[in-house]
Simulated assay, not measured.
Amino acid sequence: MNSEEKQKVLTLYRKLLTAWNQRDASFMASLLSPEGDLVGFDGSQMKGPEEVRTTVGDIFSHHKTAAFVSLVREIRILSDKTALLRAVVSMVAEGEKEINPAVNAIQSLVASKENGEWKVSLFQNTPAALHGRPEEVEKLSKELQTAYSSSQAEPKST
């Protein structure tokens, strides 16, 4: 059961990033619990699906946002109704082939199970500045670039 629940939490996280990448604020908001919180890269805080829908919708209407590239580091089922997912991410602007290391981040998602369905209780996107550790920034950037490049590879014929 634990691995099945972890997969459901992973699916929730992937849907959240897909909603961002597709610039779909309504879909993004639908993934939150009624009391869900979202903390953006710049520290912006949003409470509840309606505020996420409105605020993120405004962002999408005024900015051509870059797409997330992610690597999930850990998923922990904390209880029958609570889970934690940790990931590292970067972003790739439309038409680009390289990640932007300036926006590397650490993401944390706390999910809660409500009426049998996992929902986002908290999503936080924190800059991975890694002050004073340029080698760690470079290592993370290379890892995320490799993940992005691998996801863009053409399928091979057999």
Rank of each mutant, 00 (worst) to 15 (best):
L78D: 03
S3Y: 14
R73H: 10
F60D: 02
F41Q: 01
V137L: 11
N115Q: 11
P34D: 13
V9N: 04
L85E: 01
L16F: 15
W118I: 03
R23C: 14
S79Y: 07
T54N: 15
A129K: 15
I75H: 08
L12V: 07
K6R: 12
V103P: 01
Q124W: 02
M91N: 06
V9F: 05
K97D: 12
L130N: 13
N100K: 07
L85Y: 05
I99D: 05
G57L: 03
A25D: 06
E114L: 14
S26W: 00
A147H: 07
F27S: 15
R76F: 04
G116A: 08
V52G: 00
E50C: 00
T126R: 04
A129N: 12
R133I: 03
V92L: 08
F41T: 00
A19Q: 11
T55V: 07
R23P: 01
L85K: 09
A128L: 10
Y13G: 06
R53D: 05
N125Y: 02
S33D: 10
K113R: 15
H63L: 13
L84S: 03
L38D: 05
H62G: 06
F68G: 04
L10D: 08
V89C: 13
E50V: 02
S30Q: 09
Y13S: 12
S79K: 09
A93V: 06
A93F: 05
F27Y: 06
M91T: 14
K142R: 14
M91C: 07
T126S: 11
K97T: 13
S121T: 14
V52F: 00
V120H: 00
L140V: 02
E136I: 12
R23Q: 14
G95D: 06
V89G: 12
E51H: 02
I106N: 12
V120R: 01
S157W: 14
I77P: 00
R86N: 10
L78Q: 03
V9D: 04
V92W: 09
M28D: 02
P155M: 09
G40C: 01
S26Q: 14
V89I: 04
A67P: 05
L10P: 00
A153M: 09
L144A: 01
V110M: 15
Q152H: 04
I75T: 15
P134F: 11
S157T: 12
A83P: 06
S3P: 04
K64C: 10
S108Q: 15
V9K: 07
G48T: 01
H62I: 11
Q22D: 15
Q107I: 13
E154W: 05
L109E: 10
L85T: 01
V72N: 08
G116K: 08
M91E: 10
E154F: 10
N21R: 12
E74P: 00
Q152F: 07
Q145W: 05
K119R: 14
Q7S: 10
Y13E: 13
N2K: 08
V120D: 05
L12M: 04
Q152S: 13
L17V: 15
N104F: 02
T65I: 10
A19H: 12
V120M: 04
G132P: 02
R133N: 10
K6Y: 05
N100P: 07
Q7I: 05
A83V: 06
P127Y: 08
G36Q: 01
S112G: 15
D24L: 13
E135W: 03
G36D: 01
K15N: 13
G40I: 01
K139V: 03
E98A: 12
